[in-house]
Structure formats: C-alpha cells, structure tokens
C-alpha cells in the first residue's frame, strides 16, 4: 500500500517523532511504499542538520536523513512552518543572508499543496503528533 506519514512533533519534546520514524521503517520493511513524508509545525525540526546529540543518544534528524536517502523517499517540510522555526535550505539561507542552510538536503521545502497531493495519492495517511 501507499502511505503518507505526517509528523507534527519535534524530536526530544515528545516520543511522537521517534514513533513516526519506527513506523516508517516498519512500513518499508513490510514492503509498503512511502509516497511522502510531510513534516509540519514543530515536526520540521526533524530535518535540522545542525542537531548534536550525546554519543549514546539517538540522533533523530540524522536517522530520518539516512532513512530518506537509503530508501529514496520524498520528504517535504512545510514552508510556512519551517522558515519561522529557522529551518532553511541553502537558497533560503542565501536569500536571507544567513551563513548556511540548516535543513538536511534530503528534505525539500514546499507548501501545503504537497500534503494535499500526498493525501489524494496515498491509500493511507498516518499522523504522528
């Protein structure tokens, strides 16, 4: 089946981002297709490449990044959620005169139209917040 996963929760504030990651990994393991990952609201922090964790602690954004790359997933962070939370890609960073982009390049900044598209083209939409 085709799934879209929507993540509203920031890492390290609640368990939900971890649950979303485990669920997505389990979906792929079972042979299902992930049509899109959509990070919304505080969920955009899951795509922050400047995340530093202790060596014995899971780096959730890095885990997402690897899962996305390893499985060639389509991952989107909502533009209106991400910019106001400091999640910018290289071109947004340049436009706003920041030193560097904060977003992993495995995720793309886009609008809510991408969520609507994902909703209409997926068999299941599963939300984690």
């Amino acid at each position: 089946m085709k799934f879209t996963i929507v993540v509203y929760a920031a890492p390290y504030s609640s368990e939900a981002a971890h649950s979303a990651l485990q669920f997505t990994a389990a979906l792929l393991k079972a042979g299902h297709e992930v049509y899109r990952l959509f990070f919304f609201g505080d969920g955009v922090h899951n795509a922050n490449r400047f995340t530093v964790t202790a060596t014995d602690e899971e780096n959730l954004p890095l885990s997402w990044h690897r899962l996305i790359l390893d499985n060639n997933l389509d991952a989107v962070v909502c533009v209106s959620s991400s910019l106001k939370r400091g999640l910018v890609d290289a071109s947004e960073a340049k436009r706003h005169d920041f030193d560097a982009g904060t977003l992993f390049d495995s995720s793309e900044i886009a609008g809510l139209g991408q969520l609507v598209d994902a909703t209409t083209n997926s068999d299941r939409v599963v939300n984690f917040g």
């Binding site: 509203y8 505080d42 139209g113 609507v116 909703t119 209409t120 917040g129």
Partner: peptide, 18 residues
C-alpha cells in the same frame, strides 16, 4: 498552534478541490 495548522490544512485541501 494546532488550531491554526488544522485550519491551514483544511483550506489547502479546499483550494485543491477536495
């Protein structure tokens, strides 16, 4: 911000004719 997020999603769906 949940109320705002919910509204934004609904309006986007409506704009795209759902």
């Amino acid at each position: 911000h949940n109320a705002q997020l919910c509204l934004d999603m609904a309006l986007a769906c409506a704009v795209f004719d759902q």
